[in-house]
Amino acid sequence: MKLLPLAMGLSCVASVTLAETTVQSCDREVTFDGVPQAAISNDVNLTEMMLVLGLADKMVGYTGISGWKTLDEEMRAGVEELPELSAKYPTKEVLIGADADFFFAGWNYGMKVGGEVTPETLAPFGIDVYELTESCIHISEKGKASMDDMYNDILNLGTIFDVKDKAEALVDGYKAELAEFTGSLETADEPLRVFVYDSGEDTPFTAGLYAMPTALIEAAGGTNIMNDFEKSWGTVTWEAVVERNPEVVVIVNYGNVTAEEKRAFMMNNPAFADLDAVKNDRFVTLEYVEATPGPRNINAVKKLADGFWSN
């Protein structure tokens, strides 16, 4: 009988030890005393990471999806039980008002450097923040975008929410599927020159060295013509695009301007008439949720490869 309190005490100590965990988030170490119970994710791709890990029951809502018109049928089914708390970037008041204890967001994915919603501004209210790995370039040094950025986020979420086995199984599956696909992919001796057209007519908004499309394009046998643009997403000049003469244009589909409208703009503009991509009408469309880090990245590589090499 005397052993029972001791055993119970040891059990309690063990449970506390197991409940506390630390992960790296950009340039910070974040320690969690327990599994978050009132999580909020921002943006469609980050929300899908939560859903693919089966974490809907740990969430009180999501933000930043409908305002960008990125919600498709698959995603709509996944979040039907959860409220959208803000159509675009949430305010601090929105997160506090939802009694959130965790915010999964990124820099320019729900947070802005120097903005009102940051890890520092949310900490006093008991809201821990985990930052999307791809977005860390906005506040710290990192290597160019790679599939490991997405894998890292899945694994860290698995650690934070105590579903490590599920996270590891997902990542192992993604890696195996990608390796099998790329191993059998027939490409040319030289990678295809690819331009990512996100938006903009006067000046194009595109993916640079640190944005996920660079990794997706490389996995599919191409090279991002803006891979010396040392940003994640940003604005370049049309002159630079013309000078580098892409063989394929990858259009990111979201927002008020459709992918077909973006294609028509390039096809009908005399300034682009000599581009190989325009002359041969070689355009591939990725949905926003495919072009940003998340569970659909493997299928995005397959879609790109089909567009690159099936013609």
Score class of each variant (00 low, 15 high):
79 V>M: 11
143 G>E: 12
123 A>W: 04
86 S>Q: 09
177 E>M: 00
62 Y>W: 08
188 A>T: 15
143 G>R: 09
136 C>R: 08
167 A>K: 02
77 A>T: 14
53 L>Q: 06
192 L>Q: 10
95 L>K: 08
133 T>V: 13
156 N>K: 13
116 E>A: 15
97 G>N: 13
72 D>W: 06
132 L>C: 06
53 L>A: 03
131 E>G: 00
149 D>K: 01
87 A>W: 01
83 P>V: 09
183 G>I: 10
93 E>M: 03
174 Y>A: 01
119 P>S: 11
93 E>C: 08
69 K>R: 15
118 T>C: 10
146 S>P: 06
193 R>G: 12
173 G>I: 07
103 F>N: 05
88 K>S: 14
156 N>R: 12
139 I>N: 03
100 A>E: 05
94 V>Y: 11
110 G>F: 06
180 E>D: 15
70 T>S: 13
117 V>A: 03
98 A>R: 06
156 N>V: 01
161 F>K: 01
149 D>G: 02
148 D>P: 00
87 A>E: 15
88 K>M: 15
109 Y>K: 03
121 T>F: 07
152 N>E: 08
112 K>P: 05
84 E>P: 02
165 D>I: 01
127 I>V: 15
97 G>A: 10
57 D>A: 07
146 S>E: 10
127 I>Q: 00
109 Y>D: 13
161 F>Q: 02
159 T>K: 13
139 I>H: 03
171 V>L: 08
176 A>R: 12
70 T>F: 00
190 E>P: 07
188 A>H: 15
138 H>K: 15
81 E>C: 00
154 I>C: 07
184 S>P: 00
143 G>H: 09
166 K>H: 09
105 A>Q: 06
184 S>F: 00
133 T>W: 04
141 E>A: 12
127 I>A: 00
118 T>R: 11
176 A>I: 02
155 L>K: 13
156 N>I: 02
173 G>P: 11
